[in-house]
Simulated assay, not measured.
Amino acid sequence: MSRWLTEAVPRARIAAFRTLVYLFVAADLVIFTPWVRDRVDVPGNLYQPLFIGRVLPLPTPTATLVSVIFWALLLLALLAASGRAHRLLGWTVFALYLQWMIIAMSYGKVDHDRFALLVALAVLPTAGRARHGDQTRTEAGGWALRVTQISVICTYFLAAWAKFRFGGLDWATGSVLAKAIIRRGTDLADLIAQVPHLLLVAQFGILAFELLSPLVFVLPERWRLATVGFFYSFHLVTIATITISFAPHLVAMTSFLPLEKVRPVVALRHLLARRSVPARGDLGPVSPVEAGPPGAEPVPGPAAT
């Protein structure tokens, strides 16, 4: 079991995952959860902190506190994306983002798509140093990715458990998806809803998918990647029909992927280098002196230099 938990991975994979996660944290503040800053405008008695917020305990958020967290987290997340000072910056970003999420989720609604991302932020500082392109393998990094993967799958499996706990089989046989489509459905969802019994089939399919999700760990690598692709396609359909994105969860799920093979910076450098080398046709006509005698190799002349 310990060997499976600490299966070594390339350090480049850790570097890529670290950059992606911290860049998402910065994007999350300004794209997905900027509304957290508006929470301070409501009366303080509406703030009902989550259990962890009561245990720590954390103060009731004020405009000053939320602004400090926002700007500090935004700056530190961008710095952490570089991979420098991975422990200091990593732990600080985790602590600030955890408090940001506690504030966000302490007004009556708790989103479970943040769980795996929070776990990733908690374990990334333990993954050690990692540079893009470094193919040496690390067990510490492997452990960080494995724990994140487990949290991703727990999000699915425990979602099914919650459905059975609070709704039983009535969740699958009821009108859950129909209500979601009425409340926030798209034109595509309206078309799907017209197909008889399709929504009921989809509800049973969602339960089966969530309950069987742990099997991804016993599949061969090729099939495991295909299954993760199916996970992404499921969320793509969810976005296209009922506009629920699960963006933090999708970022955490990249822990399953060979991210070291995706190197946008290197690809950009190659592209720029290729464009900077002029083609032969761009050098103008070749003079007889440059061409040399018949059958000889062309001799570079002043035009080529």
Rank of each mutant, 00 (worst) to 15 (best):
residue 224 R to S: 03
residue 224 R to L: 02
residue 224 R to T: 05
residue 224 R to P: 01
residue 224 R to G: 01
residue 225 L to A: 04
residue 225 L to Y: 05
residue 226 A to F: 10
residue 226 A to Y: 11
residue 226 A to H: 10
residue 227 T to Y: 10
residue 227 T to E: 07
residue 227 T to C: 06
residue 227 T to I: 08
residue 228 V to F: 06
residue 228 V to D: 09
residue 228 V to T: 14
residue 228 V to L: 07
residue 229 G to A: 07
residue 229 G to I: 08
residue 230 F to S: 10
residue 230 F to D: 07
residue 231 F to Y: 14
residue 232 Y to C: 05
residue 232 Y to D: 07
residue 233 S to M: 13
residue 233 S to N: 10
residue 233 S to H: 10
residue 233 S to L: 14
residue 234 F to V: 15
residue 234 F to W: 11
residue 234 F to S: 08
residue 234 F to T: 14
residue 234 F to Y: 12
residue 235 H to S: 10
residue 235 H to V: 12
residue 235 H to W: 13
residue 235 H to G: 07
residue 235 H to R: 12
residue 236 L to I: 15
residue 236 L to G: 15
residue 236 L to R: 11
residue 236 L to S: 09
residue 237 V to D: 07
residue 237 V to F: 14
residue 237 V to G: 10
residue 237 V to L: 14
residue 238 T to C: 09
residue 238 T to A: 10
residue 239 I to K: 10
residue 239 I to E: 11
residue 239 I to S: 08
residue 240 A to M: 12
residue 240 A to K: 08
residue 240 A to L: 15
residue 241 T to G: 06
residue 241 T to F: 05
residue 241 T to W: 06
residue 241 T to R: 04
residue 242 I to P: 00
residue 243 T to S: 11
residue 243 T to H: 11
residue 244 I to E: 06
residue 244 I to W: 10
residue 244 I to H: 06
residue 244 I to A: 08
residue 245 S to H: 13
residue 245 S to L: 10
residue 245 S to K: 11
residue 246 F to C: 01
residue 246 F to T: 00
residue 247 A to P: 03
residue 247 A to V: 15
residue 247 A to E: 13
residue 247 A to G: 06
residue 248 P to F: 06
residue 249 H to P: 04
residue 249 H to M: 13
residue 249 H to K: 13
residue 250 L to K: 05
residue 250 L to D: 02
residue 251 V to L: 03
residue 251 V to E: 00
residue 252 A to C: 13
residue 252 A to E: 04
residue 252 A to W: 01
residue 252 A to V: 14
residue 252 A to L: 10
residue 252 A to N: 09
residue 252 A to Y: 03
residue 253 M to D: 03
residue 253 M to F: 12
residue 253 M to K: 05
residue 254 T to G: 05
residue 254 T to R: 01
residue 254 T to S: 13
residue 255 S to P: 02
residue 255 S to T: 15
residue 255 S to C: 13
residue 256 F to T: 01
residue 256 F to V: 04
residue 256 F to K: 00
residue 256 F to W: 02
residue 257 L to W: 12
residue 257 L to P: 02
residue 257 L to H: 06
residue 257 L to K: 03
residue 257 L to D: 07
residue 258 P to D: 04
residue 258 P to H: 02
residue 258 P to M: 03
residue 259 L to R: 00
residue 259 L to A: 01
residue 259 L to H: 00
residue 259 L to S: 00
residue 260 E to A: 04
residue 260 E to K: 02
residue 260 E to H: 10
residue 260 E to F: 03
residue 260 E to L: 03
residue 260 E to S: 07
residue 261 K to P: 02
residue 261 K to Y: 06
residue 262 V to F: 09
residue 263 R to E: 08
residue 263 R to A: 07
